[in-house]
């Protein structure tokens, strides 16, 4: 059976400079917050960056609540304090950009 996914629009309080390094650090923090079992349940993937602060994260449907909580609990990336705001969630990227417009 196909696993259902949800897309989350996440905004960082600070600008994202190096995207690849950011991805590594973000996944590491998610793993710390969720634990290995939780990470497996959420199965997070950053699939698109929008501007210098926003990105679209894909998560499995059953772990979407954990994904939203995890973004709330991450308060540092590397050595820098930051915050992440989940602006919206949807089943498709197209609908997500409608609920959380990119130019807002």
């Amino acid at each position: 059976m196909r696993i259902k996914k949800r897309y989350l629009m996440v905004e960082s309080a600070l600008s994202i400079l190096d995207r690849e390094e950011f991805k590594r650090q973000f996944y590491r923090e998610l793993l710390l917050v969720l634990g290995e079992l939780g990470y497996h349940k959420v199965n997070p993937r950053i699939i698109r960056f929008i501007g210098d602060r926003r990105f679209v994260m894909k998560a499995d449907l059953e772990g979407v609540s954990d994904a939203i909580r995890a973004t709330a609990l991450i308060n540092r990336i590397g050595e820098q304090n930051t915050a992440f705001y989940t602006l919206g969630s949807s089943g498709t990227i197209k609908a997500l950009t409608k609920t959380a417009p990119e130019d807002a």
């Binding site: 915050a83 989940t86 969630s89």
Partner: peptide
């Protein structure tokens, strides 16, 4: 400060937690 802010979705999920 801005680092302590959360979206309404996040507040609701934390409340559920």
């Amino acid at each position: 400060n801005a680092f302590g802010m959360l979206s309404y979705m996040q507040v609701i999920e934390i409340a559920k937690m």
